[in-house]
Design a protein around this nucleic acid. Sequence first.
DNA 1: TATTGTTATACTCTATAACTATA
DNA 2: TATAGTTATAGAGTATAACAATA
Lengths: 151, 151
Amino acid sequence: MTVTQQDEERSLTPRRVGALAEDVRLACMRISRRVRFESTYAVAPHQFSVLARLEEGPRTPRELADVEKVSPPSMTRTVTHLETDGLVTRSDHPDDGRQVLVTLTVAGREMLHTIRRQRDAWMASRVAGLSPQEQRDLERAVAVLQKLAAA
Amino acid sequence: MTVTQQDEERSLTPRRVGALAEDVRLACMRISRRVRFESTYAVAPHQFSVLARLEEGPRTPRELADVEKVSPPSMTRTVTHLETDGLVTRSDHPDDGRQVLVTLTVAGREMLHTIRRQRDAWMASRVAGLSPQEQRDLERAVAVLQKLAAA
DNA sequence: TATTGTTATACTCTATAACTATA
DNA sequence: TATAGTTATAGAGTATAACAATA
């Protein structure tokens, strides 16, 4: 099949979009699964997810429950666990006495970095094993993957 | 930066490999998470995973437990649940009286297809929203993603 | 005696409902 | 009266230990 400049400007056919979407989804889910299996956890996945969320700044348990799509009691339990482990702190909300602010500690931030290093180590060894051409193709597509992952 | 033919034949620097690996891993895990959140499940993730494994052919509970990395009692529970729902059947092993063969039913196979359609629907709408150039870049890289996901 | 599968039991994460404190 | 957070309680998934059947 010959690919002309004109072809490059045209969208893929719905059929090809469907096949591409299926392949990308499957590959991403398999990679994700492998990464999770390869790295040993100091904290459980749902705890890691909360820690990562707190990197952006302090949040209330309600906000964390909403964004993580779990119930408030579940988030209470998770936050309590993280607090016991010294990874977050609870403090009074300055404006609203009902609310609580959950903040990442230095240890929590270090835990995030440690886990990410573990996860990246496996993927880096895989990427290093690709051919130069495959690495270039992947580099060109990573921006697209990030766009798919966003919002 | 100018990219010559010679550059194309050279591997990326370790630093660039590391950055690429990090970006790819993060994007894949975010996409995977989004897909899981977007689709509503008729069966739980660990049950889906077992159904998918049985697509290749019948397996014993022991084999399923090993490959899914759960304990034998957990797999007994999962298989019992799937059997109750009519998605798999248990039968005697022809050669070894101790073992049991777990086989996918027609309903189980249909369930797999239904869930995959749900998952692909979200991804297809995302891919359809990409520019033609982005779609081409993604198509070129999907083989690399599949290679990363394999083995 | 070793292995497969199951049952017994306990722990964790999840949820809904009820309770307390504050707005 | 409504909302944030917690506690009470129950349901589902996981694990280890113990047991029955078979190799």
